[in-house]
C-alpha cells in the first residue's frame, strides 16, 4: 500500500531542512512559500530518504482569496505519496515559480493551469495556451469568470432552496 504522508508530517520534514519555508500545514497537504518552492521540491526529489522522483499531478485551484497550485508527488522507491502546495494571492496576475527544471513532466500541465486559470509559471520555457486559442477572453476555471458570482451561468440554479442559491446569478427579473 502506498503510504500517504499527511501535510503535518511532510511540513515537519521540510522544516528540518529549510526552516521557515513552510507557510501552512493541513491534514491533506503542506503549503510552501513561493520563493523556496523550487529549492524544497528539488530536495524532495533528490534526498535519498525522500526520492519523490515522480510528479504525479499538477493542478491549479482558484480558492477565491488566493490561487494555489497543488503538486502530488510520488516516491516509487519508498512507495509514498505527498502533496505540496504553493499560493499566489495576486488576483490580477497570479504567478508561481515553474517546476519544469525539476520535473520536465510538468510542462504540459503548467500550460493547462495557465490556460484555464491564468496562473503564470515563471521560468516555464514555453508558456502558451493549450486547449483554448490565443486571444480567448479570460480564464474559464476562475470562479469570477464572466463576472458571475461563483462563476456560474445565469439561469442555472444551484439547487432549489439551497443556501447560496441567491448567489448563483440567475436572472430573477
Amino acid at each position: 500500500m502506498t503510504t500517504c504522508l499527511t501535510g503535518i508530517q511532510i511540513a515537519h520534514l521540510i522544516d528540518g531542512q529549510f526552516p521557515d519555508a513552510v507557510e501552512d500545514a493541513q491534514p491533506e497537504f503542506a503549503t510552501v512559500k513561493s520563493e523556496s518552492l523550487v529549492e524544497v521540491l528539488t530536495w524532495l526529489r533528490d534526498d535519498p530518504d525522500q526520492e519523490y522522483k515522480f510528479l504525479s499531478s499538477l493542478t491549479g485551484v482558484d480558492r477565491i482569496q488566493w490561487f494555489e497550485v497543488a503538486y502530488h508527488l510520488e516516491s516509487f522507491k519508498h512507495n509514498r505519496a505527498a502533496t505540496i502546495k504553493v499560493r499566489s494571492s495576486d488576483r490580477e496576475n497570479p504567478s508561481v515559480p515553474s517546476v519544469v527544471p525539476v520535473w520536465p513532466g510538468a510542462q504540459l500541465q503548467e500550460r493547462e493551469a495557465y490556460d484555464l486559470l491564468g496562473i503564470r509559471f515563471e521560468g516555464n520555457p514555453d508558456l502558451r495556451r493549450i486547449f483554448l486559442w490565443d486571444g480567448f477572453a479570460g480564464f474559464p476555471l476562475r470562479k469570477d469568470y464572466l463576472n458571475l458570482p461563483g462563476g456560474q451561468m445565469p439561469g442555472l440554479e444551484r439547487f432549489p432552496g439551497e443556501p447560496g442559491a441567491e448567489l448563483s446569478g440567475r436572472g430573477t427579473e
Partner: peptide, 23 residues
C-alpha cells in the same frame, strides 16, 4: 487520477482529471 476539492456543498468546488493520455 481525480483531484476533488469539496467546500461541503453538493457539487465539487474543483474537479480535476489527471489524464494519462495528456501527460
Amino acid at each position: 487520477g481525480y483531484y476533488i476539492v469539496s467546500d461541503g456543498g453538493p457539487s465539487p468546488f474543483r474537479f480535476h482529471i489527471r489524464s494519462p493520455s495528456f501527460i
